[in-house]
C-alpha cells in the first residue's frame, strides 16, 4: 500500500534537491568537486524515485537493486569520463 505521507516528503525532497542543482548552475560554480556533487545529488534523487515512487524498497532479490545498479553504473561511467576530462 502506497503511503501518501512519505510520497509528500519524497516529493518535497526531490524538488528541494532540484532547486539546489539549479542554484549551483546559476551561481556558475564549476570544477570537478562541484560537478561530482551535482551528479551525486542526481543519483540520490534517482534512488529516491526507485525506492519510493517505483516501490522497489520492500522487494528482495534482483529487482530490489535494479535501479541502484543502473544509477551506480551510469554514475560510475560519467564520473570516470569527467575525471578523464579534468586530468587530460
Amino acid at each position: 500500500m502506497t503511503n501518501t505521507r512519505s510520497a509528500w516528503i519524497v516529493y518535497l525532497l526531490l524538488s528541494g534537491l532540484t532547486l539546489f542543482t539549479w542554484g549551483v548552475a546559476r551561481a556558475g560554480y564549476s570544477g570537478l568537486g562541484v560537478t561530482l556533487l551535482v551528479l551525486g545529488v542526481a543519483l540520490l534523487k534517482g534512488q529516491m524515485i526507485g525506492d519510493w515512487f517505483m516501490s522497489l524498497r520492500g522487494l528482495r532479490g534482483f529487482w530490489r537493486w535494479v535501479i541502484v545498479l543502473w544509477l551506480l553504473l551510469v554514475g560510475g561511467l560519467i564520473t570516470a569520463a569527467f575525471m578523464i576530462a579534468t586530468g587530460g
Partner: peptide, 14 residues
C-alpha cells in the same frame, strides 16, 4: 522521470 533526473544535471549543469 528517472532518466530526466540524470539528464538534467548531465547536459545542463555539469
Amino acid at each position: 522521470d528517472l532518466v530526466w533526473i540524470v539528464l538534467f544535471p548531465l547536459v545542463y549543469v555539469m
